[in-house]
Structures are given as structure tokens and as C-alpha cells.
Design a protein around this nucleic acid. Structure first.
Length: 498
RNA sequence: GCGCCGUUGGUGAAGUGGUUAACACGCUAGUUUGUGGCACUAGUAUGCAUGAGUUCGAUUCUCAUACGACGCCCCA
């Protein structure tokens, strides 16, 4: 069997719906903030990332997907999105556009040759946004606000925005030297990684997990002490704008971004949810005023942000956010003989064109099997096509929620569905008309209580097994209540410790 | 690149150096129910990641590889 490549994943089924939903929310929010969608190539000249992202960064030195194409060109699969956007900005001379600044967002796959772990794949999907051509602290605040708003609209609540500044190049340089001077006499007391960091990137020592409790580290000089007047000023302005926008944040002097191009504002957004792995930063960004110039464009002030979709999806799951994902259909057409099947073919076509979600049978199941299938698909209505009825220009339609069945004229079928699908008929337990069933995940997206009313106990019909992890998504007790011992006959085989 | 654990059917999984590898769920068909959702009966293949080794014999022991999970580094 040919397996998928290491660190890559197939996203399908319900998970794919979640991803699509996240995309639609991103698109909607970005539209409000007036960012334009940009698509840049997945591969670029290797040099772009070396010069842009930084020769010393890990994502270039050891995580890079480099190859030569048949023409001998040195190519790299993009490990992040900013370098490509900046290249495009320069190449297309966007700095000359009448409308400034340029605000763009992207959403696509990135590639990093890493060892996979929780929240980290070799192929990852990131969405990100950039404001190119503005040095105004308001744009820093806007980027953060837009990012937070995307998360909020998705329903994420347990987030912490960590904010810091690296200052301008001068501040950064001085601070770096100060850190080296400070750590050098004591470096033997630090972990091996930190000893390496001292030369390579002393700022990294600050967020070392191993030495976090070390007093020397705690008393290390802070960035804020080394800021130039101007840098300090603009940092305060950023905070002021965030306050006005009512975006909550925490100043965290230990936030140091890994990519070389950052200066001034840097931030990370952390998901504070139980169960997240060690990679719980779902988005991060900052200002990069030097990058455009460094890549051959005019001096241009920019600020940006990027977020991993995979990590967002993980956060949504861990926070158990209810998403408005449709996983029901309007009507299932059942049939027995060949004539009825032909009519089913005709009717599905008609009704789909009219805007309904319609399914029928494709695998030759018995009538009984077709009913089962209709249930599995959460069909709101079912019709058993019957030649006799059809000859009389009639059709029998059953409401799967109320179990009521009636015979109606074929001429009014569309009106019938239209009326009943949008009425309150669905949902004795709620008035949202979503048609959900107890014990089945409600997808109406309203704040209805259908979901929470599932009071299934051990014998719930969600299909899970006692003693086996229940995946029905409800808060059912199937899993936790099994207290059988070895010889029970519940079939759970959960084998408690003997 | 380093560390640690794992890999049995569509799914959850038991299990053993040696005849037909449990059990449950799911699925399909049949009986019954006025057309399903309950119950009962039957069926569900090529076998225990791949390759080598130890052995009379390995799914079970050893090694390598691949992949998965988690952690370090680093990063979203």
C-alpha cells in the first residue's frame, strides 16, 4: 500500500467541513477589514527564503524543502507566506499603486521538513495577512485586532495575546549585546541549547523552558530598557490603539520571534485550552520594516500575521465550539423497482435544481436498507416512490422528525418542502427549525439547546460502545459509566487493571 | 537532527512461539414489524505495517525500514 507522506494529512469528512467553515469565516472577516486575497506560488527561488527569512533561522537551515528542477533552478517549497507576498509586492510594483497601504491576506499550504508532533505537520496550512506601506502604529493594532476577530468569530474564547517589541535595529543591536554581556559569565549554568543560543540568537535564551526558573534568567535585562525613545513611543501607541479597540493583551518581554525579519512590534496568540500539546501558539506576527528593502524593493514599513489552520481547528475541537455545519439533507427518495428508480432520477434532478439537498439510493439496497441510509444521512423527509401513486400524480412524503406521513400532489411537492423545511416543524426541543434529533449532533449553528438535551445514558443510540471511547460528540456517559469487571457480559472488554 | 512509545479486520480492540486469531460495533441479506429505526438468524475475503534474522515452526523473540503518537530543538 502506498502511504501518504510523513507529516502530511488527508482532511475529509466532517473535519473537511470544519476546515471549509474556518476558511469562510476568514474570508468574511478579511472582507470587512478590506484585505484583498492574494495567491502566490507554493514554490519560489531558494534565495528568496535565504535572504528573506534569514540564513540563521532553523526553518531555512534545516527545515527547508529544497530541490532542483529539470532546468537546474534552485527551488524551495515555501516554509511561510510573508516572503512570497513581499516578493510579489516588489515584482508587481505594488508600492506604486494609487491606493496605499497594500492590505492582503493569503491562505495556503506551507512546507517544513520537521519531525511531526502535536500541532505540527510537514505540510501545514496557514492563513496570514500583511499591511505593506504603513509605519503607523494603528496598522500594528489593526493586524492584531483582525487576527483576534477571526478567532472570536469562529467562537474561540480562551486566547491570550502576548505582546512585545524588539525595537528598531539600533535598539535590537544594543539589547543583543547587553544580553551577551550579561549571560556570558554564567552561561555554564545553562542548558546546552542555551549555550548554543548565546552566539546564534541570545534572545532565544529568554524563552527557554529548561532554564525558565533560573534566577539569572529572570533578572536578565529587558528589551524595554534598551528601547530608543522613538521605539518606546511607538510601542505605547500600539498599546493605546489596542486599548481603544478593546483588544485584551499581555505584555510579555520574553516573546521573541524566530524569523530574522522582525523588528518593533511582535506578538503571539496562545490557545489556553486544556489538552493542547506543547505547540499552543495558534497565530503570531509582527512588524518587518526592513524586509522589502532587503529583498530589493524600496524601503517599506510592513506588519503581518500568520496562523495555522490546523491549530485553529484543534483549538475549536478542544474548546468544543459549536459550528454551524450542515450534516443533514432535506429529502431521501426511496424506490423499489426500475420505473420508480427512473422517477427518482428525474425527481432528484428537479428538486436539486430547485435548491433542495436531495439524495437517493445508488447501491441496490433493500427498502429497509434505504431507510437506514436515510437515517444515517439525517434526512428531514423521506419519500417512498410508488408507481401507483406516481400514476395518480401523487407522492407520499414522511416527516422524519414528527413521523407524520401524508399524500400530496406532485405539483405541490416543491412548495410543500419549501414551506415545511422553513417552518417550526423541526424541533420540538428548540424553535430554530434546524431539524436536529436528540443524540445527533445539532448543526443549526443557532444557540439552540438540541445538542445539550441529549440525555442518552448507557443505552443511547449514538452507536458507541461501553468502555470504548464514545465519539458521538454529545456529553453522553457511555464511556465513563462502565464499571464492569472481567466477566461482565456487556461486551466492552475495557479490562480494568486487575 | 535527537529522545520515548506504538503499528492486529470498515471501526473499537483481545490474544498466543505451534491446528479454524476472541468479543463488540458497523455493514449486507433474510425472518418479523402495514415501509426502516427493536428483536432474531446468517454473511463480512486475501491474516496480525514492511523486510531480514533466530527457530523444526513466529502475528507473538531480535534487528532494520516505513508510518503514527508525544516531547526536545524550532515554529503557526
Amino acid at each position: 500500500m502506498i502511504q501518504r507522506q510523513k507529516g502530511c494529512s488527508d482532511i475529509y469528512g466532517r473535519e473537511a467541513k470544519v476546515w471549509k467553515y474556518v476558511d469562510t469565516v476568514i474570508d468574511a472577516i478579511m472582507e470587512k477589514y478590506n484585505y484583498n486575497y492574494i495567491r502566490t506560488p507554493i514554490f519560489e527561488a531558494t534565495e528568496l527564503f535565504h535572504r528573506g527569512v534569514g540564513e540563521t533561522t532553523d526553518i531555512v537551515t534545516k527545515e527547508s524543502y529544497d530541490f532542483e528542477d529539470k532546468g537546474g533552478r534552485k527551488i524551495t517549497l515555501r516554509p511561510e507566506g510573508t516572503a512570497g507576498v513581499v516578493r510579489s509586492y516588489i515584482e508587481n510594483k505594488m508600492y506604486g499603486d494609487v491606493s496605499q497601504p497594500i492590505k492582503v491576506y493569503y491562505n495556503g499550504t506551507m512546507y517544513r521538513y520537521e519531525r511531526p508532533q502535536s500541532g505540527r505537520d510537514r505540510e501545514l496550512t496557514q492563513f496570514g495577512m500583511e499591511i505593506l506601506g504603513s509605519d503607523d502604529p494603528l496598522s500594528d493594532a489593526e493586524i492584531i485586532s483582525a487576527a483576534v476577530n477571526v478567532y472570536k468569530m469562529l467562537g474561540l474564547k480562551k486566547l491570550v495575546v502576548h505582546l512585545n517589541t524588539l525595537g528598531d535595529d539600533e535598539s535590537r543591536k544594543q539589547y543583543r549585546e547587553a544580553l551577551i554581556d550579561y549571560f556570558k559569565p554564567h552561561i555554564k549554568e545553562f542548558c546546552e541549547d542555551c549555550q548554543n543560543r548565546l552566539k546564534k540568537n541570545p534572545l532565544r535564551i529568554l524563552d527557554c523552558k529548561v532554564d525558565a526558573e533560573n534566577e539569572i534568567l529572570k533578572n536578565a535585562p529587558k528589551t524595554l530598557d534598551y528601547l530608543t525613545e522613538e521605539s518606546r513611543n511607538r510601542f505605547e501607541k500600539v498599546q493605546e490603539f489596542l486599548d481603544i479597540m478593546q483588544i485584551q493583551y499581555e505584555i510579555n518581554p520574553n516573546i521573541v520571534r524566530g524569523l530574522d525579519y522582525y523588528n518593533h512590534t511582535v506578538f503571539e496568540i496562545e490557545a489556553k485550552v486544556e489538552g493542547f500539546g506543547s505547540n499552543n501558539v495558534i497565530g503570531a506576527g509582527g512588524r518587518y520594516n526592513g524586509l522589502v528593502n532587503q529583498l530589493g524593493g524600496p524601503q517599506t514599513a510592513c506588519v503581518g500575521f500568520a496562523s495555522g489552520i490546523g491549530r485553529i481547528v484543534m483549538a475549536l475541537e478542544l474548546e468544543k465550539v459549536q459550528l454551524p455545519i450542515v450534516d443533514s439533507i432535506d429529502l431521501f427518495l426511496l424506490y423499489v423497482n426500475e420505473d420508480e428508480k427512473k422517477y427518482a432520477a428525474y425527481l432528484t434532478q428537479e428538486l436539486r435544481t430547485a435548491g433542495f439537498i436531495v439524495e437517493t439510493e445508488y447501491t441496490g439496497r433493500s427498502l429497509k436498507g434505504q431507510f437506514k441510509q436515510a437515517d444515517r444521512l439525517n434526512s428531514k423527509f423521506t419519500c417512498v416512490l410508488n408507481s401507483e401513486d406516481l400514476n395518480n400524480n401523487e407522492i407520499k412524503i414522511k416527516n422524519n422528525k414528527t413521523k407524520e406521513e401524508e399524500v400530496i400532489s406532485l405539483d405541490v411537492l416543491i412548495y410543500y418542502l419549501d414551506e415545511h423545511l422553513n417552518s417550526d416543524l423541526f424541533g420540538d426541543d428548540c424553535d430554530c427549525g434546524c431539524g436536529c434529533q436528540e443524540g445527533v449532533e445539532c448543526t443549526c449553528g443557532d444557540d439552540c439547546k438540541c445538542k445539550h438535551d441529549c440525555d442518552c445514558d448507557e443505552n443511547c443510540d449514538c452507536g458507541c460502545q461501553e468502555g470504548v471511547e464514545c465519539t458521538c460528540g454529545d456529553d453522553c456517559k457511555c464511556k465513563h459509566d462502565c464499571d464492569c469487571d472481567e466477566n461482565c457480559d456487556c461486551g466492552c472488554h475495557c479490562h480494568h487493571e486487575k
